[in-house]
Each structure stands twice: as C-alpha cells, then as structure tokens.
Write a protein that binds this DNA or RNA. Structure first.
Length: 439
RNA sequence: CGGAGUGUGGCUCAGUCUGGUAGAGCACCGCGUUCGGGACGCGGGGGUCGCAGGUUCGAAUCCUGCCACUCCGACCA
C-alpha cells in the first residue's frame, strides 16, 4: 500500500474525550471513529488489526475442534422468552420491533439461537460432542460505555458453545477451550492468566476469566508467578486426548481478581517469592452451565439407554474488538503503539525520505516490491512530508519495522532499519535489511 | 441509574463571570524557502458557537427546557 493513496487519518492531539491510553492512541492513529457513545466505525488501520486478531482466534478455535457458524445479529424475542432471559436480561438488551410489530432483540450473546439450531438437528448422543462458534457483532446497551472499544455497546465477540452428553464430557470440552484460549493470547503476543470466576447470572459452577497483563489494566490480579512463566500449551498438544493434566497444572495454581481475592489463601498457597500482583484486562470468559438452556429450551438427545436427556452446555467468549485495545494497553510507549508482529496492520513501513528524487524513489520501490514478494505487507511512505513528520506518524501507528531510504544512504548503498519495539537501528545494504526482516 | 462535568471550524483550546455581531495553534489550499525525528514565511478557505424557546436595541455570553458526550460509582467480552 502506498501511504499517499491510503486512508490513515492520524491526529497530533488526542481528542479530549479519550481518557485511557489505548483509546487515545486508537483515535490518534486513525483506527476508529466514535459515532455515538460506545459505538465506533472501524477505519482501515483498525479494521486490519481487528481482522488479524479475528483470524488468529478462528485458527485456534478450529484447531481445538470447534466449528464456525455465523449467527444473526437480530434474534426473535420468543427464543429469549423460552429461556426466561427476555425479562431477566434487563435494559442492557436492545429491543426492537419489526414492521409486523414482532419483538426482536439485537443479540447480546447467542445461547438461545445456538440452542435452537442444535435442537433442530442433533438428536443422538452419537453426534456429540459438538462445539459451534460464531464471530459476530454483539450489542449490549451498557449503562455506561467507556474506554473506547474496551467497553463499547457494539463489539465483536467470538462466542463458542459446547454440547455434551454429561458433565464429564462437558468438562473435556471446557478443557479444550481453556487451553485454546491460552494459545490465542500467546499468539497475540500477550501474557494471559486464567482466573477462577464468579459464574454470575449465566449460572453454572465451572468458570474462568482470562486476564491479560497490562500496567494500565482496570482490574487487579493476584497470581502464582509460575502461571505466567508456564505460558500456553502450544498448538501441538493432543486435542482429542486427556487434557486434564495440562489444565489442572494451571488451574490449580492460585489466581484471583480483586473481587474474588482471598489474601489468606494467597499467602498460604503461594510461596513469598512467587506472589505476583499485577493489573490486567479481562479478554475472555468461559463457563460450564450444564442444563441451564437445554432444559427450558428442550435441547434433548437420545442417550445409549434410549432415553432423552438435556445436553450439558458451556459457552466461551473472547472479546475480539476489546483485544485491539487490550493489546495497545499492554504494548505501547510515549511515541505510540507497538504492535506485536502477528497483528500489526502492516509488517514494514518503507520510508522514502525524499519522494521525487529518482535514485531514492528507485531504491524505495525496489524495497517495497521485495517486501511484497516476501509477504511482509509493506506500507510505502511516499508522502511529500518532512522526515520527522513521517517518523512520528509511523511510530504512532506502531508498524514493527521501518526501512528508511534516504539520499545519504542511497549514495552509499545502504538503508537504515529500525525496530519499533526496541528503537534499535542499523545501517546496512538493502539485501541485508530484507534478510533481517524476513527473519 | 445516582453523582460530577463539558458542548465554540477536522483536532486541541481561548472568549462566557462583566451581552456589542467569533479568535489562536495544529490540520487543509496556493506560492516560495526547506527537507535524517511532527519546518518557516506570505496569502487563503472553512464555524447558523449542541438544539429549541425566552429576555434584550443587540445573545457564544443571561434565563428555561431538551439533547449529546465524558468522568466517578454499582454491573459487564
């Protein structure tokens, strides 16, 4: 992409409405535009990052055996009446009427819809387990939206739903999601810890929140340090095998957010040198809720004994749009965003310091084409602007590499390569720079 | 939903107390000089001052009502 033809409206000043750093940086980098409280338009740069995160989530869900569907944003109110949640959910649910005066809701989640689909097709225990997931916009009419896309009213969520014959089987589904979530966050360049959660209004007795560590995070977490060091299990585990040991290894270590924290237990269970207190952002939540929806909505399967029984369900959410902000909270400096390579909107910025100077243009073009060939998604900064302005805006939007092509270097046969994350620079021939970027 | 606050060109803000017909910086357009970390000069365009009423000779400014947005609190991917 040539920056002179792109749409990347960066701002020097952060709009006064933005309070937290990720919100300020997203606005300054031209990633989103607020249209109403908690409702955002995604501009090209923001959309690129959102899509990359979405794709990583998708790949890890697929790997863990979940199957993607796409559910509607508008749902019939009658389904919610069946589960009893039409009245329970309250004002957070956006209710709409169509031209036939029929009640609809803009889905805040999709347990009802997916349960309706499941019960229409799946009749036998032989078809279990099933895990269906959906990456779709949700709407929750928050009393107080805030912090940009961190708590929007409209947000992109990955929600998965598992269906199993009994609790023991459901636990296996739960374990798969537990480990898949750790892999997702690791791929996004984040340190995440699973924390036992209050299952809340959704019910059930097995629930974890996933909190990514960021100094500016809104909640405080207390955890055993090994939990962070242990990290994710990686993609190559036997997803059909017994995952219980991998889960237990992690879930048995102390981890709690401030509201569930028990200082006495923390001190008793965690040796002094391992006690970690940090701030974080909740970016995922998994639940086992048993028959909560299958019973009232009659999602029954016939068991080996010939009798019908409600399935045991779980649901698993990742806040995809929230992760965009979460990653920024976890990875930025005074100059702007520092994208992890996996989600960066562009892989490299080729900075032409003197557009119009034929020799410089030629080298910049050559670098750009080579990087395209390498699949590095280069952005060619061919703007007619001063060097400082270019560096400032490219630092702001956080592209991982800057390959700087200027008249001095071109005369000497070199370019400058700068790593955004560390600020490290080296001057070297173009071929060598390309090798470094290629990894 | 309780409490607090803010609405003035795309962004940051001044002007409001004390009414007199709207301003600065950034951004944008033109010309010139510049060009390795957000340049400078000259010229220019863009705002029914959130909306609706009211007071007044006259309202961004005072009064009333409404709307929007932000922050703190209780709840949440």
């Amino acid at each position: 992409m040539r920056l002179s033809r792109y749409f990347m409206p960066t701002l020097r000043d952060a709009p006064a409405d933005a309070q937290i750093v990720s919100h300020q940086l997203m606005l300054r980098a031209g990633m989103v535009r607020q249209e109403a409280a908690g409702i955002y338009a995604w501009l090209p740069l923001g959309l690129k990052v959102l899509k990359k995160i979405e794709q990583i989530v998708r790949e890890e869900m697929d790997r863990a055996g979940a199957i993607e569907v796409l559910l509607p944003t508008l749902q019939l109110a009658d389904l919610w009446r069946e589960s009893g949640r039409y009245d329970d959910y309250g004002d957070e649910m956006l209710r709409i009427k169509d031209r036939h005066d029929r009640d609809l809701v803009y889905g805040p989640t999709a347990e009802e819809v997916i349960t309706e689909i499941f019960r229409a097709y799946i009749k036998s225990y032989k078809d279990l387990p099933k895990n269906l997931y959906n990456i779709q916009w949700k709407f929750r009419d928050e009393r107080r939206p805030r912090f940009g896309v961190m708590r929007g009213r409209e947000f992109l969520m990955k929600d998965a739903y598992s269906f199993d014959i009994d609790e023991a089987a459901a636990r296996k589904s739960y374990n798969r999601m537990f480990l898949a979530y750790l892999n997702i966050y690791a791929r996004l360049g984040l340190k995440a810890i699973p924390v036992k959660a209050d299952p809340g209004p959704i019910g059930g007795d097995l629930s974890h929140e996933f909190i990514i560590l960021a100094e500016t995070g809104e909640s405080e977490v207390f955890a055993h340090g090994d939990l962070v060091e242990m990290g994710a299990p990686g993609p190559d585990i036997d997803w059909d095998g017994d995952l219980e040991p991998l889960v237990t290894q992690r879930a048995s270590l102390y981890a709690a957010s401030d509201e569930m924290h028990d200082a006495a237990r923390f001190e008793a269970e965690v040796p002094e040198g391992k006690r970690m207190t940090a701030r974080g952002i909740e970016v995922g939540h998994i639940f086992y809720f048993g028959e909560k929806y299958s019973k009232p909505m009659k999602a029954l399967v016939t068991g080996p004994d010939g009798k019908d029984a409600p399935i045991h369900g779980g649901s698993y959410g990742v806040g995809v749009s929230r992760l965009v902000a979460g990653i920024i909270e976890a990875s930025h400096d005074d100059a702007g965003i520092i994208w992890p390579d996996a989600v960066a909107p562009f892989g490299v910025a080729v900075v032409n310091l003197r557009p119009g100077a034929a020799e410089v243009d030629a080298v910049a073009e050559q670098a750009y084409k080579a990087l395209e060939g390498l699949g590095k998604e280069p952005l060619l900064d061919d703007r007619d602007d001063r060097p400082g302005a270019k560096f400032a805006s490219l630092d702001l939007v956080g592209i991982p590499w800057q390959l700087i092509v200027g008249p001095k270097g071109v005369a000497e046969g070199t370019v400058e390569l700068k790593r955004r994350a560390t600020g490290e620079r080296q001057i070297l021939p173009l071929d060598a720079a390309l090798k470094v970027i290629a990894g």
